[in-house]
Write a protein that binds this DNA or RNA. Structure first.
Lengths: 233, 233
DNA sequence: CCGGTCAAGTGGCTCAGCCACTAGGCCACC
DNA sequence: GGTGGCCTAGTGGCTGAGCCACTTGACCGG
């Protein structure tokens, strides 16, 4: 079998940049939230044009591994730039019921505490998250970012660092369920309504109402995700 | 809740281009294998720079929806530019065992027929696929393209349009299993060895040996894949 | 302490252009 | 006849320079 004239395998430049970036994040020990070097610096270091670096970053962006803030730098979303293999994804889905049970327990209590302890500033944060979610949906989005901030704000308003820590350990998996759940047809707007109910209960300082509204919300998400086909509402 | 000063939601230009491209493919009724307009033309039509069009195309490229040939144009891989939702992906995995059974039945027979009927030119095609796969692996890749071409070449060499049609209907799902299977550690090189055995049997015109080598190969793939999949329900 | 201004840093996007590769047509030579 | 060389147009790959928009933080005056 002649080796010399074997078919060529070409590769795009941005793919090589991608490889280098992954390696860099690993070697430099970067983790979620850390800032990547500026595009111009990366281009200079790698000896390629900024356009090629840009293409690589766009890829990472659509894969949800990186977040580019206009004028503010590019930041890591996770601790690595590796895409999750389907095997792990499926594995994680099997653990999802547990995560959602835990989420229900935690967030219900968090909503209750938030209703009792929130300051006006924290209430405003929650409201702003709600408004953002509304804006996202109005523009045809899914309201993912607004959803995320809403729950983060409620967690902050509960003033329980221990519960907050627990939430942090399942945050990644909640993110996944959020992304997928909100893509269900009609989900975003109904989700927005549930969030509004939670907000109003917290604003009114009604702890019981806040807890039950949050429980209903989390259970809805769980139902949708598990494809158990129990119609909502 | 004041509507006017709600938080802004920004969007990247390439995302809008992406949207337009998806819409265009739908409206123009393009299907797999069709050629997209040239980047320059797209940029001019959409009124954006070529760099932005490029970023959108890169996204489609990494999502496997499009194939850009240097100097030769950009072509659709599927009939649509929509990415497959996770729900569908999981659903499809449930059907995978059946697909692999069908694949075993079909490909075993195809290998047998290929050993008996292949012309020298077709044998050469098979060999070239093997060499490509080897090259890909040597360069650190998974040999996905070589694998694909190998099976396509064997199918062609069998001279059975009916079996070929059957293969076509499960081609998409086989592609998925190939991509995932070949990412297992050590899989590419072992897969290459199995392919080589199949090739040699076909070259020698040994139908029984070709069939059994192919059966062994397909079963290996099935095992790898099924190990990671425990049905949830 | 508050608010405003300013400059540096950085991502978003464009423009113009060169290079490399593909595909198809043409033609001379065997 | 067809094989190989050659040319040309079309197209993707990549670069470099540059402008704009946004973020951030420092500084300053009230």
């Amino acid at each position: 079998m002649s080796e010399a004239l074997r078919p060529m395998v070409k590769s795009r430049l941005y793919e090589q940049v991608l490889e280098r970036l992954r390696a860099y994040v690993g070697e430099a020990g970067l983790s979620a939230g850390d800032k990547l070097p500026a595009e111009r610096d990366l281009a200079a270091s790698l000896g390629v044009s900024r356009a090629s670096v840009k293409q690589a970053i766009v890829v990472l962006e659509v894969q949800g591994l990186v977040e580019a803030r206009h004028g503010g730098g590019t930041y890591l979303v996770r601790d690595t730039l590796d895409v999750e293999p389907v095997e792990q994804l499926v594995e994680r889905r099997k653990r999802l019921p547990e995560v959602l049970e835990a989420r229900e327990a935690l967030e219900t209590k968090l909503a209750e505490l938030a209703a009792e302890r929130r300051t006006d500033a924290e209430l405003e944060d929650i409201r702003r998250a709600l408004v953002l979610m509304e804006a996202e949906i109005a523009e045809g989005g899914f309201g993912v970012e607004g959803d995320r901030r809403f729950h983060a704000a409620v967690t902050a308003a509960a003033h329980s660092s221990l519960l907050a820590d627990f939430m942090k350990t399942i945050a990644g998996q909640i993110t996944e369920s959020r992304n997928e759940s909100l893509r269900q047809p009609g989900r975003p707007s109904r989700s927005l309504a549930q969030h509004t109910a939670i907000y109003e209960a917290i604003a009114a300082g009604d702890a019981r109402k806040a807890a039950s509204a949050m429980r209903k919300h989390v259970r809805t998400v769980a139902k949708v995700r598990l494809l158990t086909w129990v119609p909502e509402d």
